[in-house]
């Protein structure tokens, strides 16, 4: 690790945590989270409500004291960092309703004054598409406009790291697409590192260079969307009906071999033969809903844990996310479909 912070892909991670733990009154919320976020990437922390996303991010933002573990954000411990560090970090929270009486341009110009090298407020208004609202009062903005103003306030100081907390909650599809374009522009054109928290897999897949899935205070999977999809698809499910009439189901990394063996064993056609490759969405939903049954278990139904990463290499040839029933049909639908024939 050299001391050239400007070198792009990688020398020193922008965010680095090791064994990050958080306990509230004896209850553990985070069980040793390890994260590495590299300069210039969009990193999504994906997880359901209550998984520990908010706690993790607030520790990284310097708003919460951790119970244990090591945390470095932009080379400093956020719990102790001062104004110089603050100036390099931007925040966009979903709960802000502040400065409602201020005019949009007035507010942005005011906040520019806190930073050593701020962006030009007028240009920034154009970037977030609020030029027409410059003279408007903040409390007269629509929800989407308000959020874009929050983004403008978050980046007015030219942060190196931007936290986006559930940024598109309540957006209509068009506003969401515009917002995604803007975030991509920030990362691609301006080299801002972005940590996005969301519970929306589609948003994470759409935006993120890498996704970490946080469930029950643990990182259950981490990688690029393609990697995760490939890992998810690595364990195919083979189903068939035996000559005796009973239904079978088996998970395997090599479905072709299993099918071939089945054919040999039966010596003829196999009834109701199906090979399915789970999508990333299936796996994610499975992680969320199949938790109690699968925790620490092995074999079929295993969640996409960190150990699954080892299998990713072996399954590298697998065509990511193009199983027989990709796309339409949610995991929940499929779960219902599974139960039906068994009954």
């Amino acid at each position: 690790m050299t001391s050239t912070p400007s070198s792009p892909a990688g020398a020193e991670p922008v965010v680095e945590t090791r064994g990050l733990r958080m306990a509230y009154g004896g209850t553990d919320v985070l069980h040793g989270v390890d994260l590495d976020i590299r300069r210039g990437e969009i990193f999504a922390l994906l997880g359901p409500n209550g998984a520990g996303k908010t706690t993790t991010v607030e520790i990284l933002e310097g708003f919460r004291q951790r119970s244990a573990g090591e945390v470095r954000v932009l080379g400093a411990d956020p719990a102790r960092a001062g104004d110089a560090w603050r100036a390099r970090v931007g925040l966009v929270l979903q709960s802000w309703r502040d400065h409602r009486r201020w005019q949009v341009a007035e507010l942005l110009t005011h906040f520019a004054a806190y930073y050593p090298d701020p962006r030009d407020p007028d240009e920034l208004l154009a970037v977030v598409g609020l030029t027409g609202q410059a003279r408007q009062r903040v409390d007269r903005l629509s929800g989407g406009q308000r959020r874009r103003l929050d983004v403008a306030l978050g980046i007015v100081g030219r942060p190196e790291l931007l936290f986006l907390d559930e940024p598109t909650t309540g957006f209509d599809p068009e506003a969401r697409r515009d917002f995604h374009d803007m975030v991509e522009h920030l990362a691609a054109e301006e080299g801002v590192t972005i940590l996005l928290t969301t519970h929306d897999l589609a948003e994470a897949e759409r935006l993120a260079d890498r996704i970490a899935m946080l469930v029950d205070g643990r990182i259950r999977a981490c990688g690029t969307p393609a990697e995760l999809a490939r890992r998810a698809a690595a364990q195919a499910e083979v189903r068939w009906t035996a000559p005796g009439g009973e239904r079978h189901r088996e998970r395997t990394g090599d479905p072709s071999r299993l099918v071939w063996e089945l054919h040999q064993a039966t010596g003829g056609p196999i009834a109701d033969l199906e090979v399915r490759r789970p999508t990333l969405e299936d796996t994610y939903l499975h992680m969320l809903h199949g938790r109690p049954a699968t925790d620490g278990a092995d074999g079929s139904g295993r969640p996409l844990g960190t150990d699954a990463a080892d299998e990713a290499g072996a399954a590298a040839g697998a065509d990511a996310g193009t199983g027989p029933d990709t796309g339409s049909g949610s995991g929940a639908e499929r779960a219902r479909a599974e139960r039906a024939p068994a009954a």
Binding site: L93, W96, Y115
Partner: peptide, 16 residues
């Protein structure tokens, strides 16, 4: 201003 998040915004701002 605490409830609206003004205080938090200034806390997140250098010298705020």
């Amino acid at each position: 201003e605490r409830e609206e998040g003004t205080l938090l915004r200034l806390r997140a701002t250098p010298g705020g």
